[in-house]
Design a protein around this nucleic acid. Structure first.
Length: 633
DNA sequence: GTTTCGGTTCTTTTT
DNA sequence: GAACCGAAAC
């Protein structure tokens, strides 16, 4: 046995949780108290006590968290852990669904729709029903309603009423679009993100023998960020864990910031009730931040209703207190931040030690401009995900259609790359083909060729050599597709052709890891740009300031943190205050923001913002600022 | 009838 | 920067 030194590496709180006896365990891990460490050592502890890694299930929300934990566990107990089932809920559900898809009436080669795909499909459904007016909710709004309904196991009607009630919108239309969207997904043998979870749960509810198999398999189940689970995820975990009851969940109700996508922190609050006899461990010793920062964090959240009481205890010595900075407007704020960054840089601090956090991406616009003008390198996590960029999706459309001949979305995407082919032509051709095109089938291909407008035939013929490669690995297919056709298309289509070409080369490199097309396509849909090294391979080496939304900064830390636009209406965001939940989630978001900081925290409070009509809008300071002790104000 | 092009508008949070 | 809309071009 390698002998991990548990006693030496962990504090008392952590050690107790790691060595908890079998049975349900709830670990309340406040910010910066070593949550990941605890979970990792728990895995090591289980393995050292004879649990086979492939009988442990470790669930996370992000791929990054999963990878980090598996890497660290590997560091502790060696390669043995690689058999462990670890990953996001979506990944694990997908892994099971690929095996049992037929039971639910899907083909095992079902396509996974990402946000973009789902949007196009909802749009198509709304179009078909003639419901794409100015006064009618846009596809994104509809999708968020459908998503919320799915993840809360509610009727579309109920959610739609909450979101759109009293706005002169026929809620039946919202339901009709949903029905058509569902039908279209079925016809294309496709699942969106929510379907992965919903069907994952259906698999357990409707097929007891399948459930029994997985219950038998998993001796121990561990869940990270439990406060972010929705009812489906919680029910899914419960079905697996209810017999052995070896379920350890880690979370912090203070950091529940995803209720808008269905997360229900009642799951964590009610855990002791749902699992009578559950052991509860609290981690409150904070290693990250200086006391002044923790004071701000503790203060803003203390008044929230419904939470496990806990107080962050500082271990570090007091240094400078956090700073509240009053500013005129966004421009002055940008100037202030840039000057600060300059000064700290001159004093020897690395740019990589600094982050600017904000509620919404557009809050950082002025700052981006100024940083660019001043030639201060910065890295921003926003915009399109790598795998959702047009050129990446274009390059994969053929592969997707080859894997799933009923995938109309990929069919249209592919065909619309050709001249003279637009939406209408596509749907006509798709109809004529009987809603199916098997690219492996030469006669089906020539039937399509006959249907193409004459102007598009030459391009189609360019693809001939790609079809020969369809049965080899996915990387080769993409490579040939780009060489035979897409490169010429891209050079005349995109003004930033060079960058996109590099992206495509990166994509091929990434794809080479996969033998199997279905597996590759699943990963494509389930990975985000933060999870891959594919995007921006150069950026890592350059010392740069990070700009990030607070949501994306969760779980991370920096010596210096700026929080910008702390104005009431910006943060807390006015759009989030309409709900019946009050401002408690915004408070938690502020809590997350402040607890990212180790040494220095700058809270920026601009007073006004230029409105679109050329006027100005005044904002009172954020309630999170006015709530602070008078010494700050 | 369709596709394409060019100008305009608007950015919450994401697996 | 990308999605949308309306007008020009095929």
């Amino acid at each position: 046995m390698s002998g991990v030194s548990f006693e030496q590496d962990l504090n008392e709180e952590q050690l107790a949780a790691v060595q908890a006896p079998d049975g349900p365990v709830l670990v309340i891990a406040a910010a910066g108290t070593g949550k990941t460490r605890t979970l990792t050592y728990r895995v090591a502890w289980l393995v050292e006590h004879g649990i086979e890694p492939d009988r442990i299930l470790l669930l996370t929300f992000t791929n990054k968290a999963a990878r980090e934990m598996l890497d660290r566990a590997r560091g502790l107990v060696g390669e043995g852990v690689s058999g462990l089932w670890g990953g996001t809920f979506h990944h694990m559900a997908n892994r099971m669904l690929r095996r049992h898809a037929e039971a639910l009436g899907y083909k095992s080669d079902y396509t996974i729709l990402d946000q973009d795909d789902s949007r196009s499909l909802v749009k198509a459904a709304a179009d078909e029903l003639n419901l794409l007016g100015k006064h009618f909710p846009k596809p994104d709004v509809l999708l968020s309603i459908y998503g919320l309904a799915a993840s809360r196991e509610e009727q579309i009607h109920v959610i739609a009423e909450q979101r759109l009630g009293g706005h002169d919108i026929d809620l039946n239309d919202v339901v009709r679009i949903h029905d058509l969207y569902e039908r279209k997904k079925r016809e294309q043998s496709a699942m969106d993100f929510d379907d992965l979870l919903v069907n994952g749960l259906r698999l357990f509810r409707e097929f007891p023998s399948i459930l029994a198999r997985y219950r038998e398999r998993f001796m121990h189940i561990l869940v990270d960020e439990y406060q972010d689970t929705n009812v489906i995820q919680a029910a899914w975990v419960d079905s697996l864990a209810v017999e052995r009851r070896n379920l350890l969940v880690v979370g912090d109700d203070f950091q529940s910031i995803y209720s808008w996508r269905g997360a229900n922190f009642q799951n964590i609050l009610s855990f002791p009730r749902r699992y009578p006899g559950a052991a509860v461990y609290k981690l409150e010793t904070n290693y990250r931040s200086v006391p002044g920062i923790l004071d701000v964090a503790n203060a803003c959240i203390a008044g929230n209703p419904d939470q496990f009481q806990k107080t962050l205890r500082a271990t570090r010595a007091a240094t400078r207190p956090p700073v509240v900075v009053r500013l005129r407007d966004g421009e002055q704020q940008a100037l202030y931040v840039v000057n600060r960054i300059r000064r700290m840089r001159a004093a020897g601090q690395s740019l990589s030690d600094m982050v600017v956090l904000y509620r919404a991406h557009f809050h950082a616009l002025e700052l981006q401009l100024l940083l660019a003008r001043e030639r201060i390198p910065f890295q921003i996590t926003s915009g399109k995900r790598f795998f959702e960029q047009a050129h990446i999706k274009d390059a994969c459309a053929l592969l997707r259609l080859a894997a799933n001949p009923e995938d109309e979305l990929s069919f249209s995407r592919l065909l619309q790359l050709f001249p003279k082919v637009g939406k209408k032509t596509c749907s006509k051709m798709w109809g004529a083909l009987g809603g199916r095109l098997d690219l492996h089938d030469a006669s089906a291909r020539s039937r399509l060729e006959g249907l193409l407008p004459t102007g598009a035939r030459a391009s189609w013929q360019d693809l001939a050599e790609v079809f020969g490669a369809l049965n080899s690995n996915p990387a080769l297919v993409i490579e040939r597709f780009v060489a035979a056709f897409y490169d010429q298309y891209a050079v005349v289509t995109f003004d930033n052709y060079e960058r996109r070409k590099e992206d495509l080369e990166e994509l091929v490199l990434f794809t080479e890891r996969f033998e199997n097309t279905t597996e590759f396509l699943s990963e494509m849909a389930l990975l985000t740009n933060l999870d891959t090294e594919v995007d921006d391979p150069n950026a890592e080496n350059v010392e740069s300031v990070r700009l990030s939304t607070i949501h994306q900064a969760k779980g991370l830390e920096w010596p210096t943190v700026f929080v910008i636009w702390l104005s009431d209406g910006m943060f807390p965001s006015s759009r989030s205050l309409n709900g019946d939940e009050g401002d408690s989630e915004e408070r938690r978001l502020f809590y997350v923001a402040t607890t990212r900081a180790k040494d220095d925290l700058f809270l920026c409070v601009p007073a006004l913002r230029n409105a679109r009509d050329g006027g100005v809008q005044y904002y009172p300071p954020s309630r999170f600022i006015t709530d602070l002790a008078p010494s700050f104000n």
